[in-house]
Structures are given as structure tokens and as C-alpha cells.
Amino acid sequence: MRNVTLLEIYSHPITQKYVKRSGLAHAIATAYNALKLSIKYDVNPDLATKAAFLHDIGHYTWYKDGEWDFELYKENDIHAIKGAERAHKLLVRLGEDPRKAKQIALAVLLHTDSYLPDGQLERNNLQKVVALADELDEEPNGQHHYRQISNEKALQQIKHLDALVDAHIVEHIYRKSV
């Protein structure tokens, strides 16, 4: 049914490096939020969870005098641009359908308007789902990026998400055939 699972994405060294750096617990929570929202907005749950899980893969850590500088980050951030590129390259490398990889990358790109001069975006439903899923898990001053999760718990939740996505896809196919 799916070319690439969340488990395959999670297991890749690129994901391990960049998603862990930007907050694995946040990425997983955002993917769960996206799954719930995908039903409400009639969006493919596979695309929504993948884009939500990868939405911060482009983060760069902004430090000043050895301390995280949230204001410096806000002023110079382009993580969505870098993340869209990384997500697309990773997904294609893993064997994702190129059209789906592009949709996911665009949702990663448009999950925030922080890098735009006027901050105005027109989003499609997939892009809205990812942006809303991210907002639902945000904490003041970027603290959501620092929540911790063990590798074992993360793996368990990723496998659970994959099972939920598969179930939603099967249910969606069944509803369309009836």
C-alpha cells in the first residue's frame, strides 16, 4: 500500500541525525496530531504523518555564547526551506513515489511562515494539517524541541503510528468502495 513507512524513515541515519537534533518527541507528537487532523480535513494520513514527522528536519541550532538564542533563531530561521529539501531527498532515496515526496516536501516547506517577509500563506489541506499539527504541540520559546523520549519509546510509537496509518488507509478504501 505504501512505498515507504514511518519506520523506514525513522530508521534512516539522516532522520536519526536531524530529527533527533530538532526534537524527536515533538516530531512524533506532531505526526500523531496530523493523523487525527487528516481525518477531519480528508487528507491522506500517510502523507500527513510523514510530513508532520519530518517538518523540522531542517532545523539549525542557533547558539550565542554557548547558549540557545531563540531570538537569533527567529531572526535567521529558514528551517522549513532546508527541511523541505532534506525531506524530499530522503524520501526519494528511500523509494517514495516522487509525486508524494514532492507533496510531503511542500507541506514541510509551508508548515510555518516564519521565513516569509509578510508571513502570509495559502495552504492546501495537507499543508494546513501539518501546520496545525505543529502548532498543537508547540511550547513557548521553542521548548517543545527539548522534550526527551527514549529510543525504545520512540520506536514503539513509530510502529504504532504505522499501524494506525495502515488501518486508516484500509478504512478509507473500504468507505469508497461501499
Rank of each mutant, 00 (worst) to 15 (best):
D97V: 07
K153N: 11
N151Q: 12
L110E: 08
K17N: 12
N151M: 14
L126P: 02
A105L: 09
A25Q: 13
S38E: 07
Y18P: 04
S11R: 14
K89V: 13
R2K: 08
A105W: 01
K36M: 03
L110N: 13
A101G: 02
Y41A: 11
L7W: 12
T15A: 15
R93T: 09
R147G: 01
T61A: 02
Q103H: 08
I104S: 07
D166M: 12
V4W: 05
Q16E: 15
Q103R: 10
H160V: 02
I81N: 10
M1L: 11
I104H: 05
S177A: 12
K64I: 00
T49W: 08
A154W: 09
Y146W: 11
E75V: 06
A27F: 03
K20Q: 11
V92E: 00
Y73M: 05
V178G: 10
P117R: 03
A87S: 15
A105P: 06
A25P: 04
L47E: 11
L121D: 06
A31R: 07
I158M: 00
H26D: 04
Q103C: 13
H111P: 08
E96H: 06
P45N: 05
I169W: 02
T30E: 00
M1F: 13
L136K: 12
L24N: 08
A167I: 04
L94I: 03
D77N: 15
I57K: 12
K159Y: 01
P45Q: 07
Q148W: 12
K20H: 11
D56S: 11
Q16Y: 08
I28Y: 11
Y32C: 01
S177C: 09
D137W: 05
V92T: 09
L91W: 02
E71R: 15
I28G: 08
N124I: 04
Q143E: 15
K36Q: 04
Q143I: 08
Q120C: 07
L110I: 03
G83R: 13
P140T: 05
K17Q: 14
L155C: 07
N124W: 02
H26F: 12
P13M: 10
G95F: 03
V165A: 02
W62Y: 15
A163R: 08
R93C: 10
K17M: 14
T112Q: 04
K20D: 06
Y41W: 14
K100V: 00
I28R: 06
A163S: 12
W62L: 06
R86P: 01
N33D: 00
H144R: 01
T30L: 05
A48W: 05
R147C: 07
V129A: 06
K74N: 01
K82M: 07
Y18L: 07
S114T: 03
K17P: 05
W62Q: 06
Q157G: 00
E152H: 11
S150V: 02
E8A: 13
V165Q: 04
K102Y: 13
E96T: 05
R86H: 05
A87F: 11
G58W: 08
L90K: 09
K40V: 15
I149R: 08
L54P: 00
T15V: 06
A27M: 03
A107L: 12
L35A: 03
L116T: 10
K82W: 11
N151S: 13
L37K: 08
E152Q: 15
L91G: 05
L35W: 03
E8S: 13
A131D: 00
L6C: 08
L136A: 10
I158A: 01
F70A: 00
H59P: 01
L54C: 04
